[in-house]
Design a protein around this nucleic acid. Structure first.
Lengths: 140, 140
DNA sequence: CTACGAGTTCAAGTCGACTTTAAGTCAAAG
DNA sequence: CTTTGACTTAAAGTCGACTTGAACTCGTAG
């Protein structure tokens, strides 16, 4: 696969629409690429960048967060303190998210075991738990 | 805490706005409650239901999925086969999501270690991996 | 020369999940 | 009585993340 990819090539590899790629450029997730006859030509590195963007989105980050987190500082200059704090928070957030997914999984499994009141019982647990959590503002 | 909760009580306990609760009723996530002088009065069970809804949302389920998954069959009748399959898929989906969060966490940690090209390298790995995955349509 | 396929821009449209606004009802307090 | 505060409805608005549509420009193939 050569460099100088057309926008449709990039789209195909990543499973995106070309409109999404233009949109990313517009909001500063992708840098404006070189042009040939007015058309965008990309180098391979954009594919790696987009792959990270996709995964970060699947991890629940917004495009604004992604821009900040991954492209918010000049490479070759070490991540500044502000970024370090941000990522530290995000790492903790991911940890919490994972715990919650695990709980959700457990609930679904319980429901499968035909514990038909699992829903209500689980709701009770969640409720008492979240009233505790609400005191030390944990997420967002 | 008595039964016969006003909509504002429910909202306060769950940390929602009243408008969200009315919206849930409208789209069938909550059953229409009894009314007193035209006003909605809820029993405690609605709190448990909403707690589950919130967690499911945080786990990445849409409201449509939540309605199907959790309120899509009459309680007391054991979950039908169709539901069982659906939840089986959702459980697998959660597993995949968790794996991805873990990967994301690893990436962030690598970037913290000032491996400033971690981003590009990680992108490469993700890309080669996802071209494999695309063959056995894994999610959605 | 013209027709095509792929690209371009800019503005407007869509979707999910709500929120906001406007106008109205009701019971209890002053 | 009138005011207050909490509720009601229906319709319109918002936000993020794109998509769609209309009108246009290219280079190449016939």
């Amino acid at each position: 696969m050569a460099d100088n990819l057309a926008i449709s090539d990039v789209a195909r590899v990543l499973g995106l629409r070309t409109s999404a790629i233009r949109y990313y450029e517009q909001i500063g997730i992708l840098p404006p690429p070189v042009r040939r006859n007015g058309q965008r030509r990309y180098e391979k590195s954009v594919l790696f960048r987009l792959a990270v963007v996709q995964r970060a989105q699947q991890s629940g980050f917004t495009l604004d967060e992604i821009r900040e987190l991954f492209f918010g500082f000049r490479r070759a200059t070490r991540p500044p303190k502000r970024w370090h704090e941000l990522s530290e928070r995000k790492i903790a957030e991911l940890q919490l998210r994972m715990k919650r997914l695990k709980l959700m999984q457990t609930l679904l499994k319980q429901m499968q075991g035909c514990r038909c009141n699992a829903l209500e019982e689980c709701g009770k647990k969640l409720l008492s738990r979240s009233s505790k959590e609400r005191n030390h503002a944990y997420l967002r």
